[in-house]
Each structure stands twice: as structure tokens, then as C-alpha cells.
């Protein structure tokens, strides 16, 4: 939670007069309904996986997970997911720090155009991102195309195309909320431009960096459309957990699809908790 929003909050007290009570009740019902809806989504997955099948005995929930972990295809997808998401998160942040910094600090020619361009991967339908990547590589040398398209690098590139835009937005917000003058003072105190950035500006934007890493990781985890088109869904090769859900569903194994979904829910929840704990304390996205 940001300092700014905390500043605008007040401690909960039972509403006093009738008008305020009605106002808060209506808003409360809307917030509660949506929160309940999200809980039900996760709860339904848990209940389905826990119910098991008529042939299973004992702990169906645990058995379903064990079966998923025993499957070489799912294990391979899990490893590729973790590795590709981590690489994507690191690359996204590496691009987002200088990009977000320039957008936050300077008004340069084309500033607004680049700012608008950054929204394109966020608002484009995911399938269009994948298709555009595929078309772009048709114009590139066949050697490079052969190394990337329908191979593992395509997984990272497809994830990066979208995740990076989110990371840049976060870093821009983070630098927007730091004081430009601190870096200027640091320079008068003897710092070079690089030192002022490394010793003063980056530490002040550090919660933003952690949020950018975690959000980019979570976006990469959820990526599916661009992956399917640009990297394919070949088992043991370019399959990640989101494609596993799709492949298991397509062969009619709903139980495996739900189990893999729950693994992704657990990973996403862990990432959200990490982002909330580290990142969003001191600045507002």
C-alpha cells in the first residue's frame, strides 16, 4: 500500500448517520461481492481437485498434485515456466529502469509518442501480439528465425513483449514519486551522473524495482495467447504451465488442468504477496 493512499485513509468506525450508513453499505456490498467472486473462483478449483475421481481413494487432493509432479511433461512445463518467467522478469526490469527513468524525468521529442506506444502491448489482444511477433520474424534472416520461432527463446520473447510494458509503467511511476532535486544535490556533493543515479535515485525507487520484477514475473506466468502462436505448444519443448492447462483440457483431462491451474494460482498468490510486502509500501502505481 502506498504512503499516499495511507495518507487518505482513516480508521474504520461504524457509520454514524443514515446517509453515510447507506453510502458505505452500498459500496461495501459491491467490494464484498467482487472479493467473494475471486474467492469462489479459487475455491471452486480447490473443491474440484479435492473431490477426486471414483477410482481414487485416500487423499485425492494430494494424489492429484503428486500425479501432476510425476508427469514428465508437466514437470518440464513447470521448469520452463519458472526459468522463462524469471528471465523475462529480469530482462523486463533491466529495460524498464532506464526507460521509466527517462520518461519520468525528461520531456524529450517524441516523449508522448513513446509513452502511448508503451500502452500498445497492454491494450492489444494477446493473440495479435503473438501474430505480430510471428510476422516480424518473417522479415528477419532465416537463421535467426529458425533459432527463435517455435523454440524456447520464443517463449521468453512472447512473455517479454507484454510483461516489459507493465514493468516500464511501474518504473515510471516509481521515478515520478522520487525527487529529481536529490540527484542534483548529490552531484553538487561530488557524485558523477552515474553515481547520483546508483547511490541516490535507484535506492529511492527500489520498492518500484521489486514491484516491477514481481509484476513482470506474474504477467509472464499468465501469458498464453502470444505463446501459443509464436512459440507453439509442443510438449517437452515450448510447453509452459498456461499451455499445459490448455493441452490437458484439449485431451479431456479436466482434473489435471485444474491441478495445474492451482499450481499457477499458488505461484501467482506468492508473487502478489511478495509484491505487496516489498513493493507497494512506499509508492503508488
Amino acid at each position: 500500500m502506498s504512503d499516499v493512499s495511507r495518507h487518505n485513509q482513516r480508521e474504520w468506525r461504524p457509520p454514524g448517520h443514515g446517509g453515510e450508513r447507506a453510502f458505505l453499505t452500498i459500496f461495501g456490498i459491491i467490494l464484498g461481492t467482487y472479493a467473494l467472486f475471486i474467492l469462489l473462483l479459487i475455491g471452486a478449483d480447490l473443491a474440484y481437485a479435492g473431490r477426486g475421481t471414483p477410482t481414487q481413494s485416500g487423499w485425492p487432493f494430494a494424489q492429484a498434485f503428486l500425479a501432476a509432479f510425476r508427469s514428465p511433461e508437466i514437470r518440464s512445463a513447470m521448469i520452463l515456466t519458472m526459468v522463462s518467467c524469471t528471465i523475462t522478469a529480469i530482462l523486463s526490469t533491466f529495460i524498464a529502469i532506464p526507460s521509466g527513468y527517462l520518461l519520468a524525468r525528461y520531456q524529450f521529442p517524441g516523449n508522448r509518442l513513446i509513452d502511448a506506444l508503451l500502452d500498445v502491448p497492454i491494450v492489444l489482444p494477446p493473440l495479435v501480439v503473438g501474430l505480430s511477433l510471428l510476422i516480424l520474424f518473417q522479415f528477419l534472416p532465416p537463421g535467426l528465425r529458425g533459432m527463435v520461432v517455435y523454440k524456447r527463446p520464443a517463449v521468453i520473447l512472447a512473455q517479454l513483449a507484454v510483461a516489459c510494458a507493465f514493468a516500464v509503467r511501474i518504473m515510471r511511476a516509481a521515478f515520478d514519486q522520487t525527487d529529481r532535486r536529490c540527484a542534483e544535490v548529490a552531484q553538487t556533493l561530488g557524485c558523477s551522473r552515474w553515481q547520483a543515479f546508483r547511490l541516490v535515485e535507484l535506492p529511492e525507487a527500489w520498492p518500484g524495482v521489486l514491484t516491477a520484477v514481481t509484476i513482470a514475473w506474474a504477467r509472464a506466468l499468465g501469458e498464453f495467447g502470444p505463446l501459443l502462436i509464436f512459440a507453439g505448444a509442443t510438449r517437452n519443448k515450448t510447453e509452459v504451465l498456461s499451455t499445459t492447462v490448455f493441452l490437458e483440457l484439449s485431451i479431456g483431462d479436466l482434473s489435471a488442468a485444474v491441478t495445474v491451474s492451482l499450481i499457477m494460482v499458488a505461484a501467482a498468490v506468492a508473487v502478489v504477496i511478495a509484491a505487496r510486502t516489498w513493493g507497494s509500501r512506499t509508492f503508488k502505481i
Partner: peptide, 12 residues
């Protein structure tokens, strides 16, 4: 030595 308005202290 430069002291800007309100100090601009390093927050971290």
C-alpha cells in the same frame, strides 16, 4: 555546497 528549498534530503 548547495542547500535547496526544504532540504531535498535523501529519503533512504
Amino acid at each position: 555546497g548547495y542547500v535547496p528549498q526544504d532540504g531535498a534530503l535523501f529519503k533512504t
